[in-house]
Design a protein around this nucleic acid. Structure first.
Length: 561
RNA sequence: GCCCCCGUAGCUCAGUGGAUAGAGCGACCGCCUCCUAAGCGGUAGGUCGCAGGUUCAAUUCCUGCCGGGGGCGCCA
């Protein structure tokens, strides 16, 4: 709908004579939803924007624009208001057409009509296979999956990707930890390794290793333990497979699926890390100092150069990271979005610098990042900092067990990523008024209930009759609800392009609110067939939009509560 | 010291270069002979951290300061 108004204004501007609007001015028309319904449905400030360059009084200019608008039955009334805003009041017909689109498109209502077809990779979670997923990973999973779904509504072909840091020191420490547990040691013992992982899950892995069990991660081969305590390599393989499988279970419980698991170790085995380093050396972007190899990241805006190859001959973590991002580019992803904790923000400059220094045509801002702040968990009015299984942090599994998947997913995307988040377990558990998840789901269930009652009365919903009677939906709360419903495609576009899924969560909360108001104000199952079906159309459309929006967030839309 | 993010109602948070700054919770007052009261209506509550600047217009953009969080490793 917004587009239609935008195009209308644009066309009007194009027809203005040069003495009113000089031809060298090419304005970008911004049409917005009005905040106050008295100002109509949409408004543009284009006359105010143009007033200065055109050296004209804004109201005068607005009048000229309005006069040049092509006639259309989508708009009932155009007004000039305040200093020079142009307000558009849509016709009942415009709304009827939009409601019809909701029915016709169903689950795909709100999707962008433009077939972008561009491929984009969204990387998220990317947890080290050294322990259970924590609540921060949960925030990433909720954000990443919702953002991916949002991008899909805009026509992108999205790949959800998980990067496994299965090489490096932390994996070695994991193997040592399991080995120590297998030998009967525990944290605090004198022989317990210094950098070991202390969580209880290490004991579980050791026990299964000794019992010669088999584990199977989502995309790997089954790994059978040989039970030999001295075989550190076997322990490492088993422990990694074990923890990857554990993470698979958590993610599945959370309703998040990945298309690609990319293993850091593969970057070494297929020579990509070496090739990356060679290219950087060849391009003259490196130098030797103190027995280490350095990358001149300062040439690309970093505040100091960074070590690539340590004096012991191993690489620092960002080297495989650069090699990894080259594969994203080479796999045809012209856009890449990484979702990470804000504690990683310092690494962004390094990775981008490495990609630039390779000089293979990757643009400067590649990849994009969405950084999120920490999650703190409150329960019974106190912060929860530890869990039995992981030791030093609350796991995603704990959270899902406590409050259920729907609440966790909705809560974790309901705030801007860059704001700190306090997860209130008691609030999420409350199946009462103040819990936003239940509030939205309840709206959906209530519509379903109305249709069940309709069937019990032996009646059917007749859409065409409703459409003929849409003009009878004249109450304020009916108009407000229609307006809200038809804003849905704009919300999806905005949330997708700004990488902000929380916009959708807020929208759904508001939409549910408008519905509850409506529900309370009128009876739907009235004897008047025309009015009844007009109202049923409206709430059926509401149900559809609620369902579509919740699906994007990975939250269920129950028919009964 | 440097870099990034945040600072809006008692609390948790939305929002915007424009027309009276919003929601939920909490407080207070109302609403079930009626499709789920897990709901709805109303009242109260704000110098949008502080100070400058840009603009016809700043809570929104810029600069500085104050307060909170995170990051500044030959760790990942």
């Amino acid at each position: 709908m917004k587009y239609q108004v935008e195009r209308l204004v644009q066309a009007a501007l194009a027809t203005l004579p040069a003495d009113i609007l000089p031809t060298d001015i090419s304005p970008t028309v911004v049409v917005e939803r009005t905040r106050d319904p008295a100002h109509g449905d949409f408004a543009t400030n284009v006359a105010l924007q143009l007033a200065k360059p055109a050296r004209r009084n804004p109201r005068q200019l607005a009048e000229a624009i309005v006069a040049a608008l092509a006639p259309t039955d989508l708009i009932e009334k155009v007004e000039i208001a305040g200093p020079g805003f142009i307000n558009f009041h849509l016709s009942a017909r415009a709304y009827q057409e939009e409601l019809a689109r909701i029915f016709d498109l169903g689950p795909t209502y709100g999707y962008s009509a433009r077939p972008a077809g561009e491929r984009i990779v969204v990387e998220f979670v990317s947890a080290n296979p050294t322990g259970p997923l924590h609540v921060g990973h949960g925030r990433q999973a909720a954000l990443g999956d919702a953002l991916s779904a949002l991008l899909q509504t805009q026509g992108y072909e999205v790949t959800r990707e998980f990067y496994y840091n299965d090489a490096g020191v932390q994996i070695h420490n994991l193997a040592l930890s399991v080995q120590a547990r297998a030998r009967g040691l525990k944290p605090g013992d004198p022989e317990w390794p210094a950098d070991a992982y202390n969580g209880e899950y290490i004991q579980d892995i050791a026990a299964d290793f000794l019992a010669k069990k088999t584990v199977h991660a989502a995309d790997g081969e089954p790994v059978k333990a040989n039970g030999k305590v001295d075989d550190l390599d076997a322990i490492r393989k088993f422990a990694v497979a074990y923890l990857r499988h554990e993470q698979d279970i958590d993610l599945q419980k959370f309703g998040v699926r990945f298309d690609v698991y990319y293993l850091e170790s593969s970057l070494y085995t297929d020579g990509r890390v070496e090739r990356t380093v060679e290219t950087l050396i060849k391009n003259g972007k490196t130098y030797e100092k103190d027995g280490a190899l350095w990358l001149r990241t300062t040439e690309y805006g970093d505040d100091k150069d960074r070590v690539m190859r340590k004096s012991d001959g191993t690489y620092t973590y960002f080297v495989p990271d650069v090699a990894y991002h080259v594969t994203k580019w080479e796999r045809g992803f012209r856009r890449a979005i990484n979702i990470q904790g804000s504690d990683h923000h310092g690494t962004i400059a390094r990775v981008r610098a490495g990609l630039q220094a390779l000089n293979i045509g990757i643009p400067q801002g590649y990849p994009d990042y969405v950084l999120h702040k920490m999650v703190r968990v409150m329960r019974d009015g106190q912060e929860v900092k530890i869990s039995k299984r992981a030791g030093s942090y609350v796991t995603l599994r704990d959270l899902i067990d406590w409050v259920g998947r729907d609440a966790v997913r909705f809560f974790l995307v309901s705030r801007k990523a860059d704001a700190e988040f306090v997860f209130d377990v008691d609030l999420a558990l409350a199946q009462t008024e103040e819990n936003p998840v239940f509030y939205v789901q309840y709206a959906h269930a209530r519509v379903c209930s109305v249709f069940r009652q309709l069937a019990e009365k032996g009646l059917v919903h007749e859409r065409e009759i409703g459409e003929l009677n849409i003009a009878r939906l004249t109450e304020t709360y009916e108009k407000t609800l229609i307006r809200k419903l038809t804003a849905y495609p704009e919300v999806l576009e905005s949330a997708a392009t700004s990488h902000e899924p929380h916009q959708l969560a807020h929208y759904l909360r508001e939409l549910a609110g408008e519905f509850h108001t409506y529900y309370n104000a009128v009876q739907f199952l009235v004897d008047d067939v025309g009015l009844r079906n007009a109202r049923l159309n409206l709430i059926a459309a509401t149900r559809q939009v609620l369902e579509n929006g919740l699906k994007i967030l990975g939250v269920s839309a129950p028919e009964k509560m």
